[in-house]
Deep mutational scan, measured.
Amino acid sequence: EESVKIVRLVKNKEPLGATIRRDEHSGAVVVARIMRGGAADRSGLVHVGDELREVNGIAVLHKRPDEISQILAQSQGSITLKIIPATQE
């Protein structure tokens, strides 16, 4: 059973501070990098390897990473992410 986590981040004009990529094996959209000091890093709630399912209620599974980045870039104020946390080894 996948544990889905709802994360709310507050982002002003600054970038979210995370990059995403598509996992070639599973097809999932995952967090590739977290930039120090960005909104994602400061929240402490988003981690490399987390699978991104939704951004502000928009399912991202069938979107290209550049489309998802665009949605994230255009979002201001509160951003709600639905993520499946990376499995902690």
Rank of each mutant, 00 (worst) to 15 (best):
V4S: 04
V4A: 10
K5L: 05
K5A: 04
R8K: 13
R8W: 04
R8N: 09
V10K: 13
V10G: 12
V10N: 14
V10L: 12
V10H: 11
K11S: 13
N12P: 09
N12L: 12
N12K: 09
K13W: 08
L16G: 01
L16D: 02
L16P: 03
L16V: 09
A18T: 06
A18S: 01
T19Y: 14
T19P: 01
I20K: 00
I20V: 13
I20T: 05
R21F: 06
R21W: 07
R21D: 08
R22C: 14
D23H: 09
D23M: 08
E24V: 11
E24I: 09
E24Q: 12
H25Q: 13
S26K: 08
S26I: 04
G27F: 01
G27M: 03
A28L: 05
A28P: 02
V29G: 03
V30E: 05
V31H: 00
V31Y: 01
A32V: 09
R33T: 13
I34G: 01
I34C: 04
M35I: 13
M35W: 12
R36P: 15
R36E: 14
R36V: 08
R36D: 11
R36F: 04
R36Y: 05
R36N: 11
G37A: 03
A39F: 11
A39T: 10
A39Q: 08
A40T: 05
A40K: 01
A40V: 11
A40P: 01
R42P: 00
S43T: 07
S43E: 03
S43P: 00
G44H: 05
G44C: 05
G44L: 00
L45D: 10
L45N: 09
L45C: 09
V46K: 01
V46G: 01
V46W: 00
H47T: 07
V48L: 06
G49K: 03
G49D: 05
G49N: 06
D50L: 00
D50P: 00
D50Q: 02
E51M: 06
E51Y: 05
E51S: 04
E51F: 05
L52W: 03
L52M: 03
R53M: 12
R53P: 01
E54K: 03
V55L: 06
V55C: 03
V55Y: 02
V55I: 14
N56V: 00
N56Y: 00
G57P: 00
I58D: 07
A59E: 14
V60Q: 02
V60F: 05
L61A: 15
H62N: 15
K63M: 13
K63Q: 09
K63C: 06
R64K: 14
R64W: 06
D66S: 12
D66N: 12
D66A: 12
E67A: 07
E67P: 01
I68N: 02
S69P: 03
S69N: 14
S69C: 10
Q70Y: 09
Q70K: 13
Q70S: 12
Q70H: 11
Q70R: 13
I71S: 05
I71H: 06
I71F: 07
I71W: 09
L72K: 02
L72E: 04
S75N: 10
Q76S: 11
Q76C: 12
Q76H: 13
Q76I: 10
Q76M: 11
G77V: 05
I79L: 12
T80A: 07
T80G: 04
T80L: 08
L81I: 07
L81W: 02
K82C: 05
K82T: 09
K82N: 07
I83V: 11
I84M: 08
P85I: 00
P85S: 08
P85C: 06
P85H: 07
T87S: 13
T87K: 15
T87I: 12
T87L: 12
T87P: 12
Q88D: 12
Q88G: 13
Q88Y: 10
E89K: 15
